[in-house]
Write a protein that binds this DNA or RNA. Structure first.
Lengths: 113, 113
DNA sequence: TAAGTACATGGCTATATGGCCATATAGGCA
DNA sequence: TGCCTATATGGCCATATAGCCATGTACTTA
């Protein structure tokens, strides 16, 4: 039953929620390449630094990234290397939507004449 | 740059957001086993049927499930089979948190005497 | 047709989120 | 020390979300 495993699902939902924002997805993809400081990410995203800093705090608190202060700057990197695989599935949801849409259009063509 | 790919990230974030709720994760895991009607899911989750119905609408609109009305009931099933793999990574985030915590405790033990 | 079952939707409230600006904190350098 | 840069935090507002209850819709069965 659900109630027994509720904690289980809540923990997982928290992580997904932390990922579920366009800017945070961008950050994760960037960090896949290499670590980045807040200023770099801020430039790339084009939002207020305070906003980016909060996004990073969300990712950090979810256990997705760690930070590392060096001098003046704070560098963030992924704590877990697998996030990429992770997106294979998201992609396939998107692809199946495209496919279905194409089929719907094809079907439309067939039926309309 | 981020701006150019913003649509891209928004589409993916939408899917993750749809998954980022304990009840919806539960639903997805249930549907991995087999299709389910709304009433079954409602019983299992123990919330109002209207609430469950709305969760299903969220999953459907994100392209994660489809529905199939048969007689009186509506059966939902996954549109994309891979969601399970998908969670391998979420798990590893959780595991790395546990591990780190354990290490922190071990370190604490070492340093405190 | 009438009544019952299974869902969906609208309305409402409480709470969370994202964004900016303003301000605080911390390190580097003169 | 004092100023500059990089980052974090608090305050605030607009919007989104989750939940329930009440109601609407569609199918079934009598």
């Amino acid at each position: 039953m659900y109630v027994e495993k509720k904690k289980h699902y809540e923990a997982r939902a928290k992580i997904l929620k932390a990922l579920a924002h366009p800017s945070r997805l961008f950050i994760v993809e960037e960090l896949q390449k290499d670590e980045r400081c807040v200023c770099d990410l801020t430039d790339m995203i084009g939002a207020d630094m305070s906003t980016v800093s909060k996004h990073l705090a969300v990712l950090k608190q979810a256990g997705i990234v760690t930070d590392d202060k060096r001098g003046n700057q704070v560098f963030y990197r992924l704590r877990v290397p697998c996030i990429l695989n992770f997106f294979g599935c998201v992609e396939s949801v998107l692809e199946s939507q495209v496919k279905e849409h194409a089929e719907a259009l094809a079907g439309l063509g067939k039926e309309s004449f």
